[in-house]
């Protein structure tokens, strides 16, 4: 079973075991991980589910769609090359661990 590791802005980490296909935003919400707001519930409208992917994790995911690209322009904390919207990320097959860092603020 793959693991998603959420790293808060203060450095604390939480590991959660998930099935392949799990959504990175929804997993965080279900586990009450602070730092992801997800106001729009995954409709790609709010940009409050911003995360930074660790390098090795980044290549595992599908590329950024036009809609996500638009929303990434609206994130509250600096957009970096490794910025993604967690609601658009589904755990792919063949990866053991995904590490996402959470920004200090979502807006």
């Amino acid at each position: 079973m793959p693991t998603i590791t959420y790293e808060l802005a203060d450095g604390t980490r939480t590991d959660i075991k998930v099935d392949v296909g799990a959504n990175v935003m929804r997993t965080a919400i279900d586990a009450d991980i602070p730092g992801i707001v997800a106001e729009c519930g995954g409709a790609a409208m709010c940009a409050t589910c911003h995360v930074y992917l660790e390098k090795d994790s980044a290549s595992a995911f599908t590329t950024i769609s036009d809609v996500e690209e638009e929303m990434l322009e609206c994130v509250a904390e600096d957009r970096q090359p490794e910025s993604r919207l967690s609601c658009q990320l589904y755990v792919p097959e063949g990866i053991e661990q995904i590490i996402v860092r959470l920004p200090e603020t979502q807006g």
């Binding site: 409208m45 940009a47 809609v67 322009e73 609206c74």
Partner: peptide, 10 residues
């Protein structure tokens, strides 16, 4: 995608 752009938080 068109709506997302026009109605985005920004």
């Amino acid at each position: 995608a068109v709506f997302t752009r026009i109605l985005s938080p920004r």
